[in-house]
């Protein structure tokens, strides 16, 4: 690249745009489909039903312990596909850059995207790049869309939850949210805190293949956290859920950060965890399949679906009390005293 910062010209669609695309993106995650550089990508039609999803990424800071906006944009869309049981096939990546962003930063993000797609074994078949004047965006925003294929026989939906079903979480909660909020608050926590951003489709596939028919639904508790996802499951299934706080895995660093910032880890975002609703007789099997994979080593059964007040989620606290969990409302704000 001749320039060391992004200029408005790089989004003009002319020669500077072509240089940006060929020298930064195609060199890192190019493939025959993307390299055609036509107006749309032509893909072979796979057997099975198609899953399709899209998501925008505006995380601040763009680099954080455990990942960056690039890997997050890949994992987030891969995981949205995986939660419906789909095998991810192909992504599109669309950037909006703020004028003046260092090209070095874009190279780092592109390299991170390349690594994340290689790890997830998905290709990028379409992309776009725009540049807006300085101050009109914050450094970089990314939108990824994803296509996946749902194997025959896989029917996952939160509406399928039944009384008696167990609720599993694939690992520790709140890691991503606690990491981003402590970074944003300028608090310097040493050691331990890192985002959990990771692809989950291999974990999902190992469960779907190893315990056929066991899982009613998967959800990834991103924004709104575990509590909000549990409320959605209870609401859509018309059932009640009780969860046991003492059985929910949480890193001590995350628990401490939450205490200091006055946050509840049940409402913090996760980017590499899933909630599974599992038939009761297969819950231990699914837990074992999760434990067998690196991304599910700290998986645990945390609750149960039951008849009761439709849509209600009750937390049995570690103190032995009961309280109702509601969906997140408003921004998670620090406490005042």
């Amino acid at each position: 690249m001749r320039d060391d910062v992004i200029l408005l010209d790089h989004g003009s669609g002319g020669l500077a745009s072509a240089e940006l695309i060929s020298q930064i993106f195609l060199t890192r995650y190019g493939n025959p489909v993307l390299a055609e550089l036509e107006d749309s990508a032509i893909l072979d039609r796979p057997a099975g039903r198609i899953a399709f999803t899209t998501d925008g990424y505006v995380v601040d800071p763009i680099f954080f312990p455990g990942g960056d906006i690039g890997s997050l944009a890949v994992h987030g869309t891969v995981n949205d596909l995986a939660m419906r049981g789909a095998v991810p096939l192909s992504l599109s990546v669309s950037f909006i850059f703020e004028e003046g962003l260092p090209v070095r930063t874009i190279e780092q993000i592109a390299s991170s995207i390349a690594q994340a797609t290689a790890r997830a074994r998905v290709s990028i078949s379409a992309g776009d790049t725009k540049v807006v004047p300085r101050g009109k965006a914050d450094k970089v925003f990314i939108t990824t869309s994803g296509l996946g294929v749902v194997p025959d026989g896989v029917e996952l939906s939160t509406k399928r939850a039944r009384p008696g079903d167990r609720i599993l979480v694939s690992g520790t909660i709140g890691d991503h949210g606690a990491t981003i909020l402590t970074q944003r608050s300028g608090l310097t926590f040493s050691g331990g805190l890192a985002s959990d951003t990771a692809p989950l489709h291999d974990l999902v596939r190992s469960i779907l293949e190893g315990a056929t028919g066991a899982v009613r639904a998967f959800r990834d508790p991103t924004r709104g956290g575990v509590a909000t996802v549990l409320c959605e499951i209870a609401s859509r299934s018309g059932l009640e859920i009780e969860v046991d706080e003492a059985s929910i895995p949480i890193r001590p660093e995350v628990a401490s950060a939450c205490e200091i910032l006055g946050l509840d880890p049940l409402y913090l975002a996760n980017e590499g965890k899933c909630i599974a609703v599992v038939s009761p007789d297969m819950a231990k099997d699914v837990e074992g399949l999760m434990h067998a994979r690196p991304e599910g080593q700290e998986a645990a059964v945390i609750g149960e679906v039951r008849d009761g007040r439709p849509g209600r989620v009750i937390l049995r606290t570690a103190a032995g009390g009961l309280r109702v969990l509601r969906p997140l409302s408003g921004m998670p704000l620090p406490r005042i005293c």
């Binding site: 849509g311 209600r312 989620v313």
Partner: peptide, 18 residues
């Protein structure tokens, strides 16, 4: 505020309107 009596009651003790 999460420390407010009404918010605390609504969010954790109150009836479920989900």
């Amino acid at each position: 505020s999460g420390e407010g009596a009404c918010a605390a009651h609504y969010l954790t003790d109150g009836p479920c309107h989900a």
